[in-house]
Amino acid sequence: MKSTLRPLRPPVSRDRIIASFPKWYTPDACLQLKELFHGQVSSACERRDTGTVGLRLSKVVVVGDLYVGKTSLIHRFCKNVFDRDYKATIGVDFEIERFEIAGVPYSLQIWDTAGQEKFKCIASAYYRGAQAIITAFDLSDVQTLEHTRQWLEDALRENEPGSSIIFLVGTKKDLLSGAACAQAETEAVRLANEMQAEFWAVSAKTGENVQALFSRVAALAFEHSVLQELERRSSARPQVGDAGLIRMEGCPSEAQETERPTSLRCC
C-alpha cells in the first residue's frame, strides 16, 4: 500500500520512522506536553486522509549568529558527521530529510542560513513559508542567546503570524560543565517562554539530543500541517476535499510529480 502511494521513494530509514509522539526536552519550555498525537491527527493518519501534507516538503529554517553551529547541527542530523573545521555558510544551503510519521510519509526541507551579517540580505529571502523556525545559539556564549530575539524577529517578519512553530536551540552542550550548563539553560528557558518557543540543548559534536530534537520538530510540524489541512478542508469543503483525495489514490505519481516541483521552487 505504501509503495503504491510513493512509487519513486525508497523506504524511509528506521530512525526516521516516528510512531509515538516524541517527547520534549524540558517541560519548563515546550510547545506542548502531550505524549500522544492529536486525536484528529491520528485518526486522519489511520484513514490515510492527510491530504497533501505527506506530499509536500515542509520548510524548517535555522537561523542564529555565525559560528554557533547551525551547519554542524544539520550535518550531524542529516549525515551523522561532525567536521571540526569551521567553514562559513555562503548565503543558504539546505538538506531534505524524509520521515514516516504515524504511517504517513513526511519530508522536511531544512534550510541552513548564513550567520554572517553580509549574507543576511540573501538568507532572509528564504525565511518565507517556514513551518518551523529554529533559532540557534551557543550555550557557552550568552551574547548569541541575546541575539536570538533579533533573528526570530527577522524570521517572523517573513511569515504569517502563528503559522510557524518556534524552537530555541542551545548548541555546543559538550563544552559546558553540568553547573555552567544548568545556568545557561535557565536563562535560555526564560527567553524561550518569552518567545513562545520550545527549548533544546544539543551537541553536534557528540550528537547528544540532535536526533531527538529533529524528531520533535518533524512531529510538531507534521501535526501542525495536518491540523491546518483539516481546518482548511472543513472551511472550504467543496473545492479541496474529494478532488485531492481521488487524484492521490487514482494516480499517485502524478500528484507527486505536480506537487514536488512547486514546493522545491518555493525557495
Binding site: 503504491t4 512509487p7 519513486l8 499517485p252 505519481s253 502524478e254 510529480e257
Partner: peptide, 8 residues
Amino acid sequence: EKTIIKKL
C-alpha cells in the same frame, strides 16, 4: 507504476 512514470 512504471508506465505512469513513463507517461509522465
